Amino acid sequence: MVIHQIKVLQSVASTLAGGGRGVSGTPFPSQPIKPLKLYEFEGSPFCRRVREVFTLLNLDVEIYPCPKGGKKYRQIVKEKGGKLQFPFLIDENTGDQLYESEQIVHHLFKYYGKTGKTPAKYKHYAKIPVAEFAGTLLNMARGVWVDKKIINRAAPNQLLELWSFEASPYSRIVRAELSELEIPYILHNVPKERWQDQGPAILRLKPGKYVPLAGGKREKMLPEMQGRMQVPYLVDPNTGVKLFESAKIVKYLKKQYGKA
């Protein structure tokens, strides 16, 4: 438990390095008909940029982890795109396959943003992602390399499902574990939709029983989350397991999928 709390503190530091990006999102997203597919790995600064925009636009996405040394999905990226570079987005709604985080960000705003235009603060990224690199280092580069014990293990038959938002320190710990174990999953973004949502689950700015914004995505997701707006929340359709709490989720993933 002490080790897990250290991970939490490191993950909090990584969140702070991001300057608040990846916390809030629109309550009324333009979710595509066909699922977006993102090949990436948790510790990549460039992938983090893309995930932050997924959170801002409140989009769900299928994640196919491609950590360094991984064998399952990196080759798919090479076959489809011609090179090993991440992130790599496949959008079957538009027919696009994109490398380069900046191009992916423009694509997401164009097709799934409210105005179809990229906001000024997202139009140009620094060539060297200093803040994102700092976040990766503060988080001890978790999610960068594959867990070599499971290198030849087959992927689960069905995609796991994770409710999360990018800047959640506890969710970051779980995403890193999924990345290192090369476990593909559906990422359900549930960012903060208004000021009343801000703060940890037990210390929100608006005290009392939590009531989601009427008609917002969080309200629609509550039944699937057992009526609790708390992240991370993991559902494994392969085993029927449903879990809150990052420590419990990581323990489960290691036991179920981390065996040699």
Rank of each mutant, 00 (worst) to 15 (best):
P237S: 01
V23E: 06
E132Q: 13
Q31A: 10
V211A: 08
C47S: 12
E193N: 08
Y39T: 12
F46I: 10
K192W: 11
A176I: 05
V174H: 00
F88L: 07
I186H: 07
K34Q: 15
W145Q: 02
P119W: 06
A126S: 13
E180D: 07
G116R: 05
Q158R: 12
Q31N: 10
K148W: 02
P67G: 07
T239I: 08
E92C: 02
I90W: 00
H124E: 14
L38A: 09
F109E: 08
K217G: 03
V50R: 02
F41T: 06
G135L: 06
D96G: 03
K192Y: 14
V77W: 00
V77Y: 00
H107Q: 06
R74N: 12
G199C: 13
E102H: 05
G22I: 10
H188N: 11
V174N: 00
Q230D: 09
K123E: 15
P27F: 03
I183M: 03
N93Q: 08
R175I: 13
K123M: 14
G143C: 04
T136N: 04
E161A: 11
F41D: 03
I33C: 09
G25C: 05
K117D: 12
P65E: 11
P29T: 11
V77E: 07
C47Y: 00
E224T: 07
K206L: 13
K7H: 11
E161Y: 01
S168Q: 10
C47F: 03
G19E: 09
D197C: 10
P27I: 10
I76M: 09
N58K: 03
V23W: 05
P223T: 09
L222K: 02
K34R: 15
G25S: 07
E193P: 02
Y73A: 11
M140T: 09
N189D: 12
S246M: 09
S44V: 04
H188A: 08
Q158Y: 05
P65T: 14
F88W: 02
P232V: 07
W163D: 04
A176E: 08
E79W: 05
R51H: 10
R194Y: 11
K192V: 15
E245D: 14
L9F: 12
P35Q: 09
Y39Q: 06
G227H: 04
A176S: 13
L253P: 01
P67C: 08
Y210V: 10
R153V: 14
I150W: 00
G116S: 06
N93G: 08
K248T: 12
E62A: 07
P67K: 01
P65G: 11
K255C: 11
E102I: 11
P223D: 06
Y112C: 07
V2D: 15
I150G: 01
C47I: 10
S11K: 05
E245Y: 02
P207N: 10
G95H: 04
M221E: 14
R21G: 09
I183A: 03
R51I: 11
W163T: 11
S171D: 07
A176Y: 00
L222Y: 01
V12P: 01
G135C: 08
V146P: 00
I186A: 07
V241E: 04
G240C: 04
I90D: 03
M221S: 10
L160M: 11
L16I: 15
N157P: 01
I249Y: 00
L160P: 02
V190S: 08
S179F: 01
P184S: 10
K148P: 00
I104H: 03
I151F: 00
P223E: 07
Y185E: 08
P129Y: 02
Y99E: 12
C47R: 01
P45G: 04
A201S: 15
W145K: 02
